[in-house]
Simulated assay, not measured.
Amino acid sequence: MNLEYRQVTEISEDDYKLLLDADPYKEIVDSYISRSTVFEVSNVDKLVGIVAMLPTRPETLEIVNIAVAPEQQNLGIGTLILQKMITSAKAAGYSTLEIGTGSNSYQQLHVYQKVGFRMNWIDHDFFVKNYPQKIIDKYLTFDGFVLRDMVRLTMKLK
């Protein structure tokens, strides 16, 4: 698969569709996206993913949003995007790369750990405190599972 990465400064409607799949509130996405470096990811001129990265502390970069188009999921695209961002962060001189996800985001947790991220800490009640409405996991709807905690993962690059 030959993915192409293009840095964008204007977020299109198609970009928002992907960003909001990973983070469901536009106001929250807007709060960090304007400070982030955003890359559209395409395969044969078709938008298949997006990633936003934000410097948070000296020598630390956080992937604040990463999404793959629903019809392109489970093809390894997310792993390829992560590997590219790891390589880019190293080349830019960062010593730490961070990412966070919902405590019940099992597939994302698997992929993040597979590429080398390690669980670092749990931000208890992150989603309850920071989001205007409860987030009900779309994959765990059998019991109306409410997303509460964010798992924070880190990777040392140096």
Rank of each mutant, 00 (worst) to 15 (best):
residue 1 M to I: 13
residue 4 E to R: 08
residue 4 E to S: 06
residue 5 Y to V: 10
residue 5 Y to C: 11
residue 5 Y to P: 15
residue 6 R to A: 10
residue 7 Q to M: 01
residue 7 Q to W: 04
residue 9 T to Y: 14
residue 9 T to M: 12
residue 10 E to P: 15
residue 11 I to R: 15
residue 12 S to W: 04
residue 14 D to E: 14
residue 16 Y to R: 06
residue 17 K to S: 07
residue 18 L to S: 05
residue 18 L to W: 00
residue 22 A to W: 00
residue 23 D to S: 12
residue 23 D to Y: 07
residue 24 P to C: 10
residue 24 P to F: 09
residue 29 V to Q: 08
residue 30 D to H: 07
residue 33 I to W: 05
residue 33 I to T: 11
residue 35 R to V: 15
residue 37 T to M: 06
residue 37 T to S: 09
residue 37 T to A: 07
residue 38 V to E: 05
residue 39 F to V: 13
residue 39 F to K: 05
residue 40 E to P: 10
residue 41 V to H: 02
residue 41 V to Q: 01
residue 42 S to N: 01
residue 43 N to T: 06
residue 45 D to G: 03
residue 45 D to T: 01
residue 46 K to P: 15
residue 47 L to M: 00
residue 48 V to I: 00
residue 51 V to E: 01
residue 53 M to D: 03
residue 55 P to W: 02
residue 57 R to E: 14
residue 58 P to I: 05
residue 58 P to G: 02
residue 59 E to H: 15
residue 60 T to P: 02
residue 62 E to N: 04
residue 62 E to D: 07
residue 65 N to F: 09
residue 65 N to K: 06
residue 66 I to S: 06
residue 69 A to Q: 10
residue 69 A to W: 01
residue 71 E to I: 15
residue 73 Q to G: 08
residue 73 Q to T: 12
residue 73 Q to A: 06
residue 74 N to G: 07
residue 76 G to P: 14
residue 77 I to R: 06
residue 79 T to Q: 09
residue 80 L to Y: 13
residue 80 L to E: 15
residue 81 I to F: 06
residue 82 L to I: 11
residue 82 L to G: 07
residue 85 M to S: 08
residue 86 I to F: 00
residue 87 T to A: 08
residue 87 T to W: 05
residue 88 S to F: 11
residue 90 K to R: 15
residue 90 K to C: 00
residue 93 G to V: 03
residue 96 T to N: 11
residue 97 L to H: 08
residue 101 T to Q: 09
residue 101 T to I: 14
residue 103 S to K: 01
residue 105 S to Y: 02
residue 108 Q to Y: 06
residue 109 L to T: 13
residue 109 L to S: 10
residue 111 V to T: 11
residue 113 Q to N: 14
residue 116 G to R: 14
residue 117 F to A: 04
residue 118 R to H: 10
residue 118 R to N: 14
residue 122 I to W: 03
residue 123 D to L: 09
residue 124 H to I: 13
residue 126 F to N: 08
residue 127 F to E: 09
residue 129 K to C: 11
residue 129 K to S: 07
residue 129 K to E: 05
residue 129 K to R: 08
residue 130 N to Y: 03
residue 130 N to V: 02
residue 133 Q to Y: 13
residue 134 K to C: 02
residue 134 K to R: 09
residue 136 I to D: 05
residue 136 I to W: 02
residue 138 K to H: 07
residue 139 Y to Q: 14
residue 141 T to I: 13
residue 146 V to D: 00
residue 146 V to C: 03
residue 152 R to K: 14
residue 153 L to T: 12
residue 156 K to C: 12
